[in-house]
Design a protein around this nucleic acid. Sequence first.
DNA 1: GCTGCGCGATATCTGTGACGTATCGTCGCC
DNA 2: GGCGACGATACGTCACAGATATCGCGCAGC
Lengths: 320, 320
Amino acid sequence: MEARHLRYALALAEHQHFGRAAASLGIAQPPLSAQIAALEREVGERLFDRTSRGVFPTAAGAAFLARARRALDEMGGAVVDAGRAARGETGRLRLGFIGSALVAPLPGVLGRFQRARPDVRLDLREMSSPAGAAALIAGDLDVAVGRGAPRGAGAEGLVTVPIGADDLIAVVARTHPFAGRDVVHLDQLAGENLIVATADQEPAVVAALRAAFGPGPSPLDCPTAARDVHTIIGLAACRVGVGLGPTRMRLLHRDDVWFCDVQPRVRLPDLHLSFRAADLSPVLAAFLDVVRANCHEVGSRLDEVLARHPAAVDRAAAPT
Amino acid sequence: MEARHLRYALALAEHQHFGRAAASLGIAQPPLSAQIAALEREVGERLFDRTSRGVFPTAAGAAFLARARRALDEMGGAVVDAGRAARGETGRLRLGFIGSALVAPLPGVLGRFQRARPDVRLDLREMSSPAGAAALIAGDLDVAVGRGAPRGAGAEGLVTVPIGADDLIAVVARTHPFAGRDVVHLDQLAGENLIVATADQEPAVVAALRAAFGPGPSPLDCPTAARDVHTIIGLAACRVGVGLGPTRMRLLHRDDVWFCDVQPRVRLPDLHLSFRAADLSPVLAAFLDVVRANCHEVGSRLDEVLARHPAAVDRAAAPT
DNA sequence: GCTGCGCGATATCTGTGACGTATCGTCGCC
DNA sequence: GGCGACGATACGTCACAGATATCGCGCAGC
């Protein structure tokens, strides 16, 4: 049984006349008779009553036609859905990210993307940078945002672009002696209890800190570890110690804390966005397009990759 | 686009390999490649990624395949549904009937039919005999049960069989002088207020009564009119007068009324079942089969009609 | 680094079957 | 009873689905 049989049966039911139904289908009457006969033979039931007043579906025919209509609707819908999926208008995007990316630039990027592609389901999962990279390589994520470029087995199959730079800044309670200062020197942190990211969650950040403090004994030897920037700020506000985190932490201003720059400047590993080069889906391409328009730190590498999906470029802002 | 394309795409998605998918379809690999290419051309999107590790659906392909699966399911379901409808296992039966038929034999017939065909929807509508005949002729009913055979325009297209005979009986309140009697003579009804069916609702019954009482003045000249047997009994119980109705009225025994036969015997028009001879659907045939098994008054006319649908006979009791 | 192999694409032929034209059988209808 | 309308049948034809043979390419392996 082919779709043709369904189309012919529906046309016959509509026109109640072999000749006119055939004409509406663009074929002659005898082939229509033959195809309907073949359909009835295959179904095993008479589907139409041929009377002198017209052609009418039998009980079996009526039941058949109802389903046939739905089957053809599904076939038409399949083409429509395929087109929408190919243009990245529908689908799913699984995004893993570290907490500080949620300070910036994710709010703007996610908002614009969801506005441009309202029918794409966003699966958002907060996780550490190494966990995001691992999930991405395992195929459990489509995009990962973390600090530092992913390394290790499988990372060579990823495309990674920087999407945000940060220097190290300090955060203290308003009642702390550092409050009111514009800058604090690394040397002045000796003797202070430091609040920093945990080494297992954000190794790249901790490595950058170690490099800044240099070899030998340092306040980093016994820090208070925090899973994300909110915790760093919260602990600092509780006078647990001096929080150290990325510049974008300033955006989380609170009345009870004070931010100050660190001297000498300590450049933290950039925020990076990664995805599997081999799995550049239309939805992903549309997402990257939004990222490129919103993050000036993005280099030309992304343009190069996006060029492989020209149809996706400049569609996110104005989907058809 | 034909169903073949959907079947081929689904097989390819399942086997992730052109050669094995083709083998599972019983065709060679080149035709499968050609059909998939034709499908992709028609849809306008690439549906499969051919990699060295296998063939995988693209985002568009995944969306397409989901709908394709449903489309093929609908096509298969269409055949199944057609078969079920042809066997009278599904569908609808619109039955019009007069109130006294609901005393008997409808309870037994409907119960057995619904047990044999649980998926058939029964539309039951109580109406007068002429209204049922008119609705049947107009195509608003599939079966009508009334008293007397339908007459008038369109009635010649109906098949009508008797399904129950009745004599006239009387019903009075337990406190009425007739209470306790086995029989009452027509002559004794003179002077009594009679409670009978209304002439416009049941003309055949009223005509039979008129014939029984003979020409000239009679108690029928100014009766109390009732729409159904329940009302006749109820009014009689209220001592409004003497109710006259069909024998089967006895089945509605109540402690406060008394039934007695009428002398001389007055034969009422039979209960008749009618349907359009041209529209003998499988569901209707199955219903008639139950009627034949439950109403011994049914004549051979029904056998003759049912012979035109041999498949329906003896299916009602044991549907496959 | 070249060869071998697996796999999908391409080229070409073939046969089935869908379709067209012509015609028949049948049923209403004037 | 002739006529017209309509669906079924008969038969020729051509398009296209499918078969066979072969090519191109990418990966693996000695």
